[in-house]
Computed example of a mutant assay.
Amino acid sequence: MITYNPAFDLYHCIYRMAHIIERFNDGECFEIDKVRIWDFYLLFPSKLYNLSLKKTEKEVREARKQLAIIKNNPYDYSGDNRKLFEWIKPFQISALNCLVSCGIINKNEYLNNRVCIASRQALNDFVNQAGHFSPSENNTLSFMSIFSRHMSLSGIDGLKARTKLLEFKYDAE
């Protein structure tokens, strides 16, 4: 049986990364790993229920409930999320490299492990030609933006610790 998974499709990854970057404000930069984490949850939205939330983040819990995501999707990968995250890394990095070569992502910032928009016009042209996200994908991306836009990537309360997709114990605080 042949199956298709967009996680291992470079062209779909370029499409997703362009839509993620489109959410950035002008002059705003994020770490490559933060962008990769957002992409992971776009691919596997049911994994949002594995995020560790603080008790004080009631509005974030409510926003996650509003997404109406199937918790136990039988077609989702049920193994180790960290391994899956590492398996899709080459596709994510290749997609970001492609967007750098197209002049959409700032090359100098990218070489410093940060993703920034180099040309908003080129990005808008690309997204308009590629097509737009479905409402559920937009909702997932909006949730990730609300949840982690101002959150540090490292540290005890950082995005790496809350998702458990990357090692965080040895991060400098």
Rank of each mutant, 00 (worst) to 15 (best):
A118V: 02
G79K: 02
R149I: 09
F30S: 15
K83D: 11
Y110C: 09
R149G: 06
S134W: 13
P6Y: 06
N97I: 07
N128A: 11
D171F: 03
L84F: 07
N112W: 03
N113R: 09
I117L: 10
L51M: 05
I69T: 02
D171A: 02
E31P: 15
K107P: 13
S46N: 15
Y15A: 03
H132T: 05
K58I: 08
A7F: 09
A68N: 11
R114F: 08
D76K: 12
L42F: 05
F30H: 15
I105F: 10
F24W: 07
W87V: 12
V127A: 05
I104T: 05
Y77H: 06
L99C: 10
E167K: 01
I37R: 00
Y11V: 07
E28C: 12
G27M: 07
Y49F: 15
K47M: 10
S52K: 13
A68W: 09
F24G: 11
Y15N: 09
Q66C: 12
G155M: 07
T56M: 07
G79V: 02
G158Q: 06
I93Q: 10
F44Y: 14
I146R: 10
F143V: 06
C102W: 13
K107C: 14
L42C: 14
N139D: 05
K47R: 15
S154Y: 08
K65C: 00
N138H: 05
K164Y: 01
L99M: 13
Y170Q: 08
F168I: 02
F143I: 06
S46Q: 15
Y49G: 09
I14Q: 12
F40N: 02
E109D: 14
K89V: 00
K65G: 00
K65M: 01
D125W: 09
L48G: 13
I32M: 09
N81M: 11
E167T: 03
D171M: 01
A122P: 00
Y15P: 00
M144N: 06
A161L: 00
